[in-house]
Design a protein around this nucleic acid. Structure first.
Lengths: 105, 105
DNA sequence: ACTATATATCGCTTTATTTCAATATTCAAT
DNA sequence: ATTGAATATTGAAATAAAGCGATATATAGT
């Protein structure tokens, strides 16, 4: 895990962060037990998409697109269990991104 | 200098970074002696807008807008000397931003 | 005063992003 | 097989951002 992210990847990551709702989502996923205490499934799986929809107040399709953007950027990943998709943060990627930004900026 | 930047300010800053040309500019300004060795005025004043125009290859008006965006976000500031506007980085602001991003992300 | 240079601003067009409703897909339960 | 629930994808409309040329403003030199 000592790979230098490309400039294109960095670009995608920064763009992914440039929408406040996407930053909110990342933040909520940092403390699922605080923000998604009502989830029926164990939070260890991640947070399921529907819960995130609710919290944003945006339409299901819009939030799905935001989640896809975050995932393409590498900030989150999802595991599918049954009909649910559980999302969680990729802490290493986030850390790596911050380090990179410290250098590059 | 112990002030917590607002969420709106953070938003403006991240948006300012979300364009590759603006990140390039910030980067060039980090080492003016490398990227603007040909400037006639002393680099200690900052880098003058025209030089930046040249380097980007974009039109004068477009670059002027990019510089304004970076300045509104607080990343750079300018001093006017005669007919020239010299731009330079606000290192403290940049550092503050990075710290804030580390927390918030 | 006039001309030239540097930069900003305006008006406009093009491109990208966000959003939603509607539809499609996938899996579970009957 | 059908139905229902969760999520993704598609198509279209609205909004925002980027770009340019032309014009405005400010300063310098003649």
């Amino acid at each position: 895990m000592n790979y230098k992210m490309s400039s294109a990847e960095l670009d995608e990551m920064i763009k992914a962060l440039s929408h406040p709702v996407r930053r909110d989502i990342l933040n909520w996923l940092k403390q699922p037990e605080v923000y998604f205490a009502d989830q029926e499934h164990p939070l260890s799986l991640g947070v399921c998409a529907g819960k995130i929809d609710q919290k944003t107040g945006l339409s299901q399709s819009t939030v799905s697109a935001h989640l896809a953007t975050l995932q393409r950027a590498g900030f989150i990943s999802s595991k599918k269990v049954g009909q649910w998709h559980f999302f969680s943060r990729n802490e290493e990627v986030i850390q790596h991104f911050l380090t990179r930004l410290n250098d590059q900026l």
